[in-house]
Design a protein around this nucleic acid. Sequence first.
DNA 1: TGTACATCAGTGAACGCGCGTTCACTGATGTAC
DNA 2: TGTACATCAGTGAACGCGCGTTCACTGATGTAC
Lengths: 184, 184
Amino acid sequence: MARTYHHGNLRPVLLAAAIEAIEQDGPAALSLRDLARRAGVSHAAPAHHFGDKAGLLTALATEGYGLLADAVSAAGDEIVEAGVAYIRFAIEHRAHFEVMFQPGLYRHDDPEVAAARERADQSLVNALAAVPKPPAAEDGPAARLAAWSIAHGFAGLWISGALPAGLGSDPAAAARPVIGRLFR
Amino acid sequence: MARTYHHGNLRPVLLAAAIEAIEQDGPAALSLRDLARRAGVSHAAPAHHFGDKAGLLTALATEGYGLLADAVSAAGDEIVEAGVAYIRFAIEHRAHFEVMFQPGLYRHDDPEVAAARERADQSLVNALAAVPKPPAAEDGPAARLAAWSIAHGFAGLWISGALPAGLGSDPAAAARPVIGRLFR
DNA sequence: TGTACATCAGTGAACGCGCGTTCACTGATGTAC
DNA sequence: TGTACATCAGTGAACGCGCGTTCACTGATGTAC
């Protein structure tokens, strides 16, 4: 693929470079100049596509919420597997995940990102709708928050390296019995 | 308190300034020069006490683990209240919490911070030891991870503003029924 | 009580660096005729 | 098929800024005698 004056594909290449950079140094250390360097392009080019750093991270968060919605939906009606899918997403797309939940980094209220977030929320609601009613009578939103919290917390602890070493290297296998405790 | 040439109390003042700065802009945006400005001291002074930014954040993480251990221990033997104490700590000491779980920011293996972390871990173990054995036979470490995950996840979601607005402004009250679901 | 001296916390000028932003530009692509 | 022109993605030089680090220094404090 000969590079001409016009790159022709720069936007996705910059997003991929951003993911790489964030996985290495975290989202706050990101600089547009570094991204340009990684993409082999002049330092002013990224601004053409994203305006500024917040614009780029907004695009990344939007992409992330889309991927999360797809991942959770694909897990089907089984709530434990939906939770596992959430955790797997967080770990396999760590850069997206970290950006998504640091609203100060991007334009949290941007319409596109809000729509994508809404889709992701809905995928979790759908997974929970299939859970058989628990013995206790009133349930309310506590079940949803509990499921979300346990998946989100496990993912965060795993990513930060806080969990004990004995859990092995497969987060899905380690997470299944943990989430399972919530739905006995 | 007249300021002489020697400040006499600079170290804790710098830590307090760091907490303030992190609550405003996050830990990655922290600069030693900004801290010096907040403390009303020359820009080279912080290096005297902490060497560099990682040194300062290591001190902050150490302090944080100590506070967390105290908070969880003070909640006593009741596991739900221990979880609520964890969440309350995370929200009331957001700067400490954010630093503690971003190991790339500080010297994670520093002996002092490791000892403080060990104390905090132990406080959670103690709280769980008092839980009555669940109906299911084998339990193992899944119970501990589930409790830790649900508290950690709820705190993270609350701090990032991801939770729905209807929960009110008291995280402890909102968290209690959520954690409670794990120990019915 | 007084003097001499070591220690060490904090100063301030200087440096080089990477950053975001601006702006006039270049050159590839697509469209109108 | 050919020419003219508008559009727009990407360039590269220039700027001002805040940062960390270095280093010779200043001055307060504590200790020895």
